[in-house]
Amino acid sequence: MPTPALKISNLRKVYRRGNVAVDDLSLTVEEGDFFGFLGPNGAGKSTTIHCITGIAEPTSGSIEIFGLDAVKNYREARRLVGLCTQEFNVDPFATGRQIVDWMGGYFGMGRAERKARIDYLMERFELGPHEKKSFRELSGGLKRRVILARALVNDPKLLILDEPTAGVDVELRRVLWRYLQEINGDGRTILLTSHYLEEVERLCRDVAIVNNGKIVRQGTKDEISGGPGGLENAYLAATGAEPDHVAGQ
């Protein structure tokens, strides 16, 4: 049996002011899976991702990435992960190419390896004509592409996407979907959070729904969306919203 790509056990995260963001959350993502991680705003999705990637410190519990402890063996574990953040957390005065190049450098990639990889990503995400513009000069969609290219520069075995298509146009969304399906087909594991349920239905094989820091429903996409109303109703029911009321009926 292969080692899971991600195994979270009893994760708890309490912020300094006492706000419990994640409460006893356990989750396993098998290697090669395309995993949808859903929940309303403030449910604990981003905090969980931050704990996995080292942006936040877990209060308790454990996180393993391909069997490596994400806290104790953080350097080895992080080599396997790519993170596409929800926010544009970049130096706004740097160019798109610099941003991606620096990230490759942090991951220890040599100059030639970085150049080849960045050339590929710039072409793939149609960033070539814009690669020398500073990040703040780019449109929202182009900024999102740079963030994606940055997440992919180290060719991660586990790719974590925190609302990667928020605010992007339909064309880019489809370009991105095709690319994600392609790398998932090549064996890459993907953890996706999104508010677009259509996106999750189209891409993911397994789904977990989180609310108030806890997993409230988990299973294959078919299991969860199999009932009446599909994934949307299952999501609304799991998060405590009333589908009819939400629909205004």
């Binding site: 992080r78 620096w102 991951f107």
Partner: peptide, 17 residues
């Protein structure tokens, strides 16, 4: 500046000691 703009996160998610 890197904390304020949050690009310190690039370093935090990297395999750097």
């Amino acid at each position: 500046f890197s904390r304020f703009i949050k690009f310190i996160e690039e370093i935090l998610v990297s395999p750097l000691s």
